[in-house]
C-alpha cells in the first residue's frame, strides 16, 4: 500500500476539465517526481490531496486515511511547500517556526530543537533578518523547513525549483535528497533534469490522466525503441549505407545527419544483426554502432505529443 494513493480523480473548472480520471500511487520512502506541462493539473492535484480543493469525484488516501475536503485530519502527516511560499513578513524565521510548532501541537522544547535543526539543514541558521527581506531562494528554503517541522510522513513540494537560479535549484535538490530517508517526497516540476537528478519514481500527467508511471529505469526499459545509431568515418559511407536496397522496406526508417545514421526498426523480429549483415555485405566498418538510449526528454515529448 502506498503512502499516497489517488484513484479516479476528476476535477473541472467551468468548461475546462483539468483532471479526467487520474490515478497515482506513491510508495513509501521514494522521491516521486510529478511531471507535466504548465497547466497540466499538477497544482490542482496537490491542492486536492491537501483538502484545499474539492474534487468532482474520486478518492485520495494519505497513509491509508481518506482525505476529506475542508478540514482534513490527513494534513498532520503532510508537509507542504507551495510553489511561491509566502510568510508573515514581519516575523523572523525562528518566530515563524515557533508559530508553526504551536499550530501543529509540538511542545515548546521540541519546536525549538527541531527549528534549529531544520534551519541549519536549509542553511538559514544565522539568519536574523525579517522574512520580508528574504530572497526567493531563502523563502523556498524556509518553506522546506516549515514543511518538515512536524516530521511529516509525506512531503509535498509544488514546483520547488522553477523560480530559482541554478545554484538555488541545486541547494533545494540537495535538501530533498538529504531528507529522503526520513520522509517520502512528492515534487512536481516541469524541469526534467531535476527529475533525473533526484527522483527514483516518476509520474507524467497529461490531459488529466496518468501518461507514464513507474521507476525511472523501468520506464526507460519499457520505452526503449528498437533503434540503433551508426556513426561512419565519412559522409560517403553513411550515404552509401543509407541508400542500400535491402534497407528500403517499410519496417525500417533511416535518417542521416552528416556521418551519423539513425535507424528505427519497428519490426521486433528484425534486430541489429540484420544491419550488421548489411554492413558486412557492403564491407563498411562503422566507427560506432550503438543501441539508442531513451532520454527522459524524448519519453516526455513522446507521451505529450
Amino acid at each position: 500500500m502506498g503512502i499516497l494513493e489517488v484513484n479516479q480523480l476528476f476535477k473541472r473548472f467551468g468548461n475546462h476539465e483539468v483532471l479526467s480520471g487520474f490515478d497515482m500511487d506513491v510508495p513509501e520512502h521514494s522521491i516521486f517526481g510529478f511531471v507535466g506541462q504548465n497547466g497540466a493539473g499538477k497544482t490542482t492535484t496537490m491542492k486536492i490531496v491537501l483538502g484545499l480543493l474539492k474534487p468532482d469525484s474520486g478518492r485520495v488516501t494519505v497513509c491509508g486515511e481518506k482525505v476529506t475536503y475542508g478540514e482534513t485530519k490527513t494534513n498532520r502527516n503532510i508537509g507542504f511547500l507551495p510553489d511561491v511560499p509566502e510568510f508573515y513578513g514581519y516575523m523572523r524565521p525562528m518566530e515563524y517556526l515557533k508559530l508553526c510548532g504551536e499550530i501543529t501541537g509540538l511542545t515548546k522544547a521540541k519546536t525549538k530543537s527541531k527549528s534549529e535543526e531544520l534551519l541549519s539543514l536549509v542553511g538559514l541558521k544565522d539568519e536574523k533578518k525579517k522574512i520580508s527581506g528574504f530572497s526567493r531562494g531563502m523563502k523556498q528554503r524556509l518553506g522546506i523547513a516549515q514543511a518538515l517541522l512536524n516530521e511529516p510522513k509525506l512531503l509535498i513540494c509544488d514546483e520547488p525549483t522553477s523560480a530559482l537560479d541554478p545554484i538555488g535549484r541545486k541547494e533545494i535538490l540537495d535538501i530533498l535528497l538529504a531528507v529522503k530517508g526520513k520522509t517520502t517526497v512528492v515534487f512536481s516540476t516541469h524541469i526534467l533534469s531535476d527529475v533525473e537528478r533526484v527522483c527514483d519514481r516518476i509520474a507524467v500527467l497529461h490531459k488529466g490522466k496518468l501518461a507514464l508511471h513507474g521507476t525511472l529505469s523501468e520506464i526507460k526499459e519499457r520505452h526503449r525503441h528498437n533503434g540503433l545509431v551508426l556513426e561512419f568515418g565519412s559522409a560517403e559511407e553513411a550515404s552509401l549505407f543509407e541508400n542500400t536496397e535491402e534497407l528500403k522496406q517499410p519496417s525500417i526508417s533511416l535518417s542521416r545527419d552528416g556521418n551519423t545514421v539513425t535507424a528505427l526498426l519497428t519490426n521486433h523480429d528484425m534486430g541489429g544483426h540484420f544491419l550488421l549483415g548489411v554492413l558486412s555485405q557492403k564491407r563498411i566498418v562503422p566507427l560506432k554502432f550503438a543501441v539508442m538510449e531513451p532520454t527522459l526528454e524524448s519519453l516526455f515529448m513522446e507521451v505529450v505529443q
Partner: peptide
C-alpha cells in the same frame, strides 16, 4: 491572496 494562510492550514490549523 498572498497565500500565507495556506501554510498554516496545511499545518493542521483548523479553519474554524
Amino acid at each position: 491572496s498572498k497565500g500565507t494562510l495556506i501554510n498554516m492550514l496545511t499545518k493542521g490549523l483548523s479553519r474554524t
